[in-house]
Design a protein around this nucleic acid. Structure first.
Lengths: 230, 230
DNA sequence: ACCTGAACACCGTTCAAGT
DNA sequence: ACCTGAACACCGTTCAAGT
């Protein structure tokens, strides 16, 4: 049990006998952490958080359910790995070009948001799980850029958490609303019907407004105005 | 089936025979929507989102599982009702006093945040569910106040969603971190140990910083500076 | 080193039935 | 009008066993 975790890490199985893969459908590559994670992401994209099931995951991999547990601790582990795999950061397109720090920060945050929106299950998972290496790298880079832009050490954490809060709130909300476009129209109609009680949000059609990207950028701008030095 | 929902709404059962309650433990009040919701909130507070189970809920109410389904559509319905019940707004303490709009807005948003932090499961549920009457009332009041403060109709939705995003992000994050205080220390130690890779967030001890309330207020201030007119 | 099936202790919900 | 138990189609994970 103790040997399992470390032993299974990334060792390639050397060919042990004349049978290439012991019990799998011919042509299927062997089970591995990487394959499990990639398939979990596919499943999550297709079926949402509730759609990820150890049994369904095993099915897609043409393996027995319990085989997964050799490579992975448990279902939570699968969530952690899938989540972090989706948060990899590749950096801005043109390297070497010296950009202003503000442009860099905006780029980083919009890329982060876009990565999560590509996998709508990911945003609401992130605050509940431990931070993986890819997310930590993003935070490190953000810290670094802000620090280089002149934000004092004493203000750094406030700045980062404020930005984190804003991005997370915006992304979680948008990802959720996206899942239910018809629901939103229905909700607004319900509002209109039964409500002299909510005249202001009725009038502004709050629930129908969907310039999410514009609203996101605008609020972010205000936040940066306040957080940054000059 | 159609009659069920409407018929069960808030009708008190008139005493039908000499037995006061047909099959319950003596002294238990009869099942009702209200009791179910109140008990669900208790259970959620005690055990978290995954702790709410129709069977456990029925146990606490000393009823059979299937009895719940007379009063409630399904588990999702229970979540919706529990969530909205926790979001009731009672207004500021001193009525009648004319406050500045900014103070009012800050009060409303901090009260909203505090209500959710009292029930740490609630924040992460809110973006995924339809907005209930209590949440709609809060949004209506917020809209109204901002509108009265001079925010143009064209800017109203951006303002509200920006504030929503910020408050939701801050609250979800804080509620999640709160659940795992030890985990956080462990995470920071892990960071320290294996990481020349994250020097900046290591140095600022990002994961240990816990002046959440101060950070929340500060960021909110910046946002309001930008969103509001003068 | 890696994979497996049987078994356990759970889930939410349908249905047909009771009072 | 309100409550119930049996049954169905699922879950995640332990364990003892296979190669």
């Amino acid at each position: 049990m103790a040997a399992k975790r470390t032993g299974a890490r990334s060792k390639r199985s050397q060919p042990t006998s004349e049978w290439l893969q012991p019990m799998q459908a011919r042509g299927e590559p062997p089970l591995s952490r990487e394959r499990i994670v990639a398939t979990a992401v596919e499943l999550l994209d297709a079926q949402g958080v509730d759609g990820l099931t150890m049994r369904r995951l095993a099915d897609r991999l043409s393996s027995g359910v319990m085989s997964l547990y050799w490579h992975v601790d448990n279902k939570e582990d699968v969530f952690d790995l899938a989540l972090d795999s989706v948060l990899e950061y590749r950096g801005p397109p043109q390297m070497g070009e010296a950009q202003d720090w503000r442009g860099e920060v905006v780029y980083m945050l919009e890329d982060w948001r876009a990565s999560m929106l590509r996998h709508p299950w990911s945003a609401s998972l992130l605050p509940r799980r431990a931070l993986g290496p890819n997310m930590l790298s993003r935070l490190e880079l953000l810290s670094n850029t802000l620090s280089g832009a002149g934000v004092a050490d004493a203000d750094l954490n406030v700045a980062i958490w404020s930005l984190w809060n804003y991005v997370m709130g915006a992304t979680i909300t948008r990802a959720s609303f996206d899942l239910s476009d018809d629901d939103r129209v229905a909700a607004q109609q319900r509002l209109t019907r039964l409500s002299e009680r909510y005249p202001t949000i009725e009038r502004s059609r709050l629930l129908l407004d969907n310039d999410w990207d514009g609203a996101f950028r605008k609020g972010l701008g205000f936040l940066l105005d306040g957080l940054a030095p000059g």
